[in-house]
Design a protein around this nucleic acid. Structure first.
Length: 976
DNA sequence: TTAGAGTCAATAGG
DNA sequence: CCTATTGACTCTAA
């Protein structure tokens, strides 16, 4: 399904190219990032600040720790604007007038856990894990949280007061938020900012014109609008994240024209259909595509998968994702109980779904299944709703069934009554705006944890409901911020042309309805989860039993990051990681602390991310998150300081701990921290006392590795019998074997340093079925060789049979092939005997000629040539090499059998298949010529959609093309 | 079921 | 202490 999207996206990309819209996106993204930066717990308060500051960095400059320019102001304005929106509008209608209607209520948003929160939790969790460290962090966090909590509290209270007068919508009353809240929040933020940067360059709100005491929200809004419009117009440079600065630089100085512009935009938005539309009940259930919403802006540029412009989605579709999310959130909060019509989506398994009534059947007596499917797919991809969730919640079907249904919908007339049910449900789903929201919300609850590892999640995967942990107020705050960002983002992003939705992003956040803000304060982040899956909802501090609705909430926060990930067209991951590495290195900050505090990832993950960043377009939404966080972090003026502070705290904590006594420890000491509380208290579960023993991990012997490499070379996608054979042969479990193959494939693929991606192993090559006999033979040779090497040295000419000598190269090849990653490859000398014989089978000669060696040699050295070869085949150059580590493995097809299926395929599955011809062509790996080289290049297809990455396993076309492209592009950076 | 993506966390080396 | 490597897991999608 993504294909389409991808295609679409691509198209859009092309069209837009670096158009304004893109720029805008970029800027938006940046803004968001900035905003997001606040994510980490401790950073939370700063988020605004950050945002403000951020603006400036020009694109990629170094770790720009914020400098402020005028941009900041704009951003501020923007943010404020958004905030105001959010705050103001309750659900709706009443607000419509305002341009930003959507805000709806979400007062809750404050409360909602923001992504940050997740982070926090994750952090905490991590901290915990690492026993020592935790505490300090928590403290830090706590401080921030408290601040936030205060603010929040006020806000909440205000809200409550206000609630009554809710606008008509049935939404929950709680939602409402007075502008004052916003103000308060802003003030608080300002305060924080001030604290942080006393003299700072950071523009404080006060500085801003309208802001002084309380910023004039309207003014801000206008400004924001203006900013937007400007963005739209095209701000100049493309900076990654930064907001456009130029034009608008100063808020103060808005010109009338600007104002007008903004006004226009607002109007446009209004007309287009505010977010409200989403929120509100749809007017007419039936019409799916109401034009009202206008095509989603997203459709074009931003969201790949998203909606197609033409199509109108039913209402729901029309809204931007952000809006949706917001609304979802709102709905959750506000309307907990009300399940949309038919199916109570939430967790329902099939059983739960009410049967379709005859009436419904009558209503839908002739649906266009294709159309429905198309819309559903778009909706799912746009909101990153998994088929599983959709299937279980909406259709009462399993993921597999949904996949099948969506991939190959039968025409209505071919369906039986029963077969039509799912389509009817889909139709109803499409017509129900809230449905999407709910789904998203529910998804997030789970997702965040998983996605972000945030921790909160208690674990029970299946039961989302319970877990909830209350979210600390802070989080809520954060979330608000997030919301704002998202809004901004949305606006900008979307803004491209269609204003339609722009305006209204509904607030995403949700606070749980009754959430008492206070306690939150206390809580530290919830660590619970950290532990593993098992732990359940720890004892949340207080059981706020959240209504079911709530459950989902926590995660909401993530939506913003999530959305950013989805909406951001592209981000230079290489540059980001480079900056991060520089910053960390310069400040002596380890990956571990960075990962835990900023990314919510473990050290190992951070290492991989930093050393082998995948290009943006190759990342799934989830995979993009860390990069977004990194970008945000880079935008944070105090990023280093914070980490440093954290580091110090941890250090001290450790010392303390040690000194105190090795014995017990922590828990008690730290107890002060909440964390400890949680855990300790709760932890009973699993492995209570004893720290679970680490599980020992399986370590393969060199021989085993060699054997696996060989087997991989022969067949990267071994079938069950082969796996079993290998397992028996190597004395390993089949599980281990499959894991190894899986990891090896994935890792080979990853390693494409810059430009050339390694080939994805194409499984096609079925040509060579795995031959045990051959395998043994080769393995023996290989092992022998290794043995010799070990003893002797590689360099030494081994006493190999004569043929070897000649072919030492081969040996080398083989070696390489087998040991792609290993450096040892270098020692080609050893001849591998094995190779000869085997190889030869089909045609012996081939080998010789090509100089494998050359290739080999080259490989080590460098890489790159890659560029040269992109296309490939033609040049012999190909040989060049590739990157060090993981060179593709070569396999001589002949060994196994001869016939390669396509002549073209030089490389298969990551493995390079050597054929005589091939050799000639290109000698080496790089080569990979693929069959359809040309075309691919032109359009690297997959790019876009976030989800795209997941393209089908087919021979990952994506990759290939891109590779080529990349290669072409010379630079290392990934080009998209 | 199989595979791709993304991670975790135990290890291995510096 | 750090970072890199790598076997194993969990989710998703098909």
């Amino acid at each position: 399904m993504f294909e389409k999207c991808a295609g679409r996206c691509r198209t859009s990309n092309n069209v837009l190219g670096k158009s304004e819209s893109e720029l805008r996106l970029v800027s938006v993204t940046r803004a968001i990032f900035l905003y997001a930066a606040g994510t980490y717990c401790f950073y939370t308060d700063l988020s605004l600040v950050t945002v403000l500051n951020v603006g400036t960095k020009d694109g990629t400059t170094g770790p720009g720790f914020g400098r402020s320019d005028g941009d900041g102001e704009e951003r501020l304005a923007h943010m404020l604007n958004e905030a105001s929106h959010i705050m103001k509008t309750p659900t709706g209608q009443a607000n419509n007038d305002d341009s930003r209607s959507n805000e709806d209520s979400s007062s809750p948003r404050t409360q909602c856990p923001s992504p940050f929160s997740n982070k926090d939790s994750s952090q905490n969790r991590r901290l915990k894990k690492y026993e020592n460290d935790d505490i300090p962090q928590e403290k830090v966090v706590r401080i921030y949280q408290e601040e936030l909590a205060k603010i929040m509290t006020r806000r909440v209270e205000d809200m409550r007061h206000n609630r009554d007068g809710f606008p008509g919508s049935g939404m929950a009353p709680h939602m409402e938020r007075p502008p004052e809240d916003i103000r308060m929040a802003l003030e608080a933020y300002h305060r924080e900012l001030a604290k942080i940067q006393p003299g700072g360059n950071i523009p404080t709100l006060h500085n801003l014109p309208g802001m002084p005491p309380f910023p004039n929200l309207l003014a801000l809004q206008q400004q924001a609008m203006q900013a937007q419009s400007q963005h739209i117009n095209g701000s100049g440079a493309i900076q990654d994240l930064s907001l456009p600065k130029e034009k608008n630089t100063k808020i103060n100085g808005m010109t009338d024209s600007d104002k007008e512009r903004s006004m226009d935009a607002e109007e446009a938005i209004r007309h287009a259909g505010s977010a409200f539309s989403l929120v509100r009940p749809k007017l007419e259930p039936g019409q799916q595509s109401t034009g009202s919403s206008a095509s989603s802006p997203l459709g074009n540029a931003i969201l790949p998968p998203a909606i197609t412009p033409n199509e109108d989605f039913s209402n729901s579709a029309a809204a931007s994702p952000l809006q949706r999310m917001a609304s979802i959130t709102n709905s959750l909060i506000s309307q907990p109980p009300n399940p949309p019509h038919h199916a109570p989506p939430q967790r329902s398994m099939k059983a739960v779904l009410p049967p379709i009534t005859q009436q419904q059947f009558d209503l839908f007596n002739n649906l266009n299944t294709e159309e429905i499917v198309k819309r559903v797919k778009e909706a799912l991809s746009q909101y990153s709703i998994s088929q599983r969730l959709f299937g279980e919640s909406v259709l009462g079907l399993s993921q597999g069934s949904v996949s099948d249904l969506l991939a190959r919908p039968k025409p209505w007339h071919m369906l039986t009554q029963k077969g039509r049910e799912p389509f009817i449900r889909m139709k109803m789903f499409l017509e129900d705006e809230n449905a999407v929201h709910k789904l998203v919300a529910s998804q997030y609850k789970i997702a965040p944890e998983k996605l972000m590892r945030t921790g909160n999640y208690s674990g029970a995967p299946s039961c989302p409901p319970n877990m909830n942990k209350p979210m600390p107020p802070t989080q809520k705050m954060i979330s608000d911020a997030t919301v704002l960002l998202s809004k901004m983002q949305q606006e900008q992003l979307l803004g491209s042309g269609h204003l339609g939705h722009l305006g209204q992003p509904t607030p995403l956040l949700l606070t749980p309805p009754g959430f008492p803000p206070h306690h939150a304060v206390t809580l530290p982040p919830q660590h619970h989860d950290n532990n593993n899956k098992e732990r359940k909802p720890p004892p949340p501090p207080q059981p706020h039993h959240q209504p079911p609705v709530m459950r989902g909430l926590h995660q909401h926060m993530s939506p913003s990051v999530y959305e950013m990930a989805a909406l951001t067209q592209d981000l230079d991951t290489q540059t980001i990681t480079t900056k991060i590495k520089e910053a960390l290195l310069a400040n002596n900050i380890g990956q571990k602390i960075f990962g835990e505090a900023v990314l919510g990832l473990s050290q190992g993950s951070v290492s991989e991310l930093l050393s082998k960043p995948k290009p943006w377009h190759m990342l799934s939404i989830k995979g993009r998150e860390p990069f977004i966080r990194m970008q945000l972090w880079l935008s944070d003026a105090h990023n280093i300081d914070r980490l440093q502070a954290l580091k110090n705290e941890r250090r001290e904590a450790n010392k303390r701990r040690r000194s105190s006594g090795p014995g017990q420890d922590n828990s008690s000491d730290t107890s002060s921290n909440d964390t400890s509380e949680f855990y300790h208290s709760s932890s009973p579960g699993p492995i209570p006392g004893a720290p679970s023993a680490k599980k020992q991990r399986v370590l393969f012997s060199e021989e085993q590795k060699e054997a696996l490499r060989l087997a991989f070379a022969l067949d990267p996608y071994p079938n069950m019998p082969t796996i079993e054979f290998l397992a028996a042969e190597l004395g390993l479990s089949t599980r281990t074997i499959t894991n190894w193959f899986h990891n090896h494939r994935m890792r080979l693929k990853q390693q494409a340093p810059h430009g050339l991606p390694a080939e994805p192993p194409a499984r096609d090559q079925a040509s060579a079925p795995f031959d045990p006999v051959q395998f043994r033979l080769l393995l023996n040779q290989r092992l022998l060789e290794l043995q010799k090497e070990r003893m002797g040295l590689a360099g030494v000419p081994l006493p190999y049979p004569p043929y070897f000598a000649a072919n030492s190269n081969f040996a080398a090849l083989i070696g390489r092939g087998l040991l792609p990653t290993d450096e040892r490859v270098k020692d080609p000398a050893a001849g591998l005997d094995l190779s000869m014989p085997l190889k030869r089978d089909p045609d012996g000669d081939d080998f010789e000629e090509d100089d494998v060696e050359s290739n080999l040699g080259s490989e080590d050295s460098l890489d790159d040539d890659s560029k040269t070869e992109p296309k490939a085949a033609s040049t012999p150059a190909g040989r060049s090499s590739r990157r060090k580590p993981a060179a593709p493995q070569w396999v001589n097809p002949d060994w196994q059998d001869e016939k390669p299926r396509n002549p073209d395929e030089v490389i298969i599955n990551g493995v390079c298949v050597m054929r005589a011809d091939d050799y000639r062509r290109e000698a080496t790996e790089t080569v990979r010529v693929e069959p359809s080289p040309a075309p691919r290049e032109s359009s690297p297809a997959p790019q876009d959609t976030p989800r795209a990455p997941r393209t089908p396993r087919t021979p990952s076309p994506d990759v290939l093309p891109e590779d080529k492209i990349k290669t072409e592009a010379e630079d290392d950076r990934w080009e998209y």
